[in-house]
């Protein structure tokens, strides 16, 4: 079986937002849609003993996605390889899934015509991978820092398997039981002043 996951290495991310722009550019997203915001709580601590981390995010492609069962039309769905996606021509933009997602990763553009709305979210670049099964999502390709790694967790030789097995990782809001498939490697080092 294939089980696509992404590992995000906070030790490497420097918050340049290239992934965000690459995603919205190559996926031709409306301006107000951001699939993969790079978040940061800003500089924390007491000057000058401070530190800062970035949290690049995207759809968590949950094992038990809250957004799929709540969809009345069946547009929101999950592939066998773990990809959660939306079949746009079945969506009617009721926004149930938008409100169901605990990560806020589903969005509706207000820049589209009022009556032609649908809900959008990251699909691990499903269109691209369908054209070329070995392809990587755009956010991964464009990352100079190689902070985003995409791959098959069921393949023990994949880079994601090695990273997840080799370093401490965490996932976001695990307690909600959604089984998010995005693993973060925290930046535990600090800046010595």
């Amino acid at each position: 079986m294939t089980r696509y996951v992404m590992v995000i290495d906070q030790r490497r991310c420097i918050g340049c937002r290239s992934c965000t722009v690459a995603c919205r550019t190559w996926n031709d997203l409306p301006l107000d849609i951001v699939y993969n915001p790079v978040l940061t709580e800003g500089v924390q601590g007491e000057w000058p003993n401070v530190r800062r981390n970035w949290l690049p995010t995207l759809c968590m492609h949950c094992e038990k996605p809250a957004c799929v069962p709540c969809c009345p039309t069946g547009a929101s769905r999950k592939d066998d390889d773990g990809t959660v996606w939306i079949k746009y021509d079945q969506c009617m933009a009721c926004k149930a899934c938008v409100n169901a997602c605990p990560y806020g990763m589903r969005q509706q553009s207000h820049l589209r015509p009022r009556l032609h709305q649908y809900i959008q979210k990251c699909t691990f670049c499903r269109d691209k991978r369908q054209m070329d099964p070995s392809a990587q999502p755009y956010c991964v390709l464009t990352c100079h820092q190689k902070a985003r790694v995409f791959g098959d967790l069921d393949d023990p030789n994949s880079e994601v398997s090695k990273l997840i097995n080799g370093a401490e990782t965490f996932r976001l809001m695990e307690d909600l039981g959604t089984g998010p498939q995005i693993y973060f490697i925290p930046d535990l080092g600090g800046t010595a002043q």
Partner: peptide, 24 residues
């Protein structure tokens, strides 16, 4: 019709916000 970072160059396929916007 499309651009991508060159994986065989020093940027290893990486392109920043500006680079990815070349077509725009």
């Amino acid at each position: 019709i499309k651009i991508e970072g060159d994986p065989d160059y020093s940027n290893q396929g990486g392109l920043c916000c500006r680079g990815t916007s070349a077509l725009l």
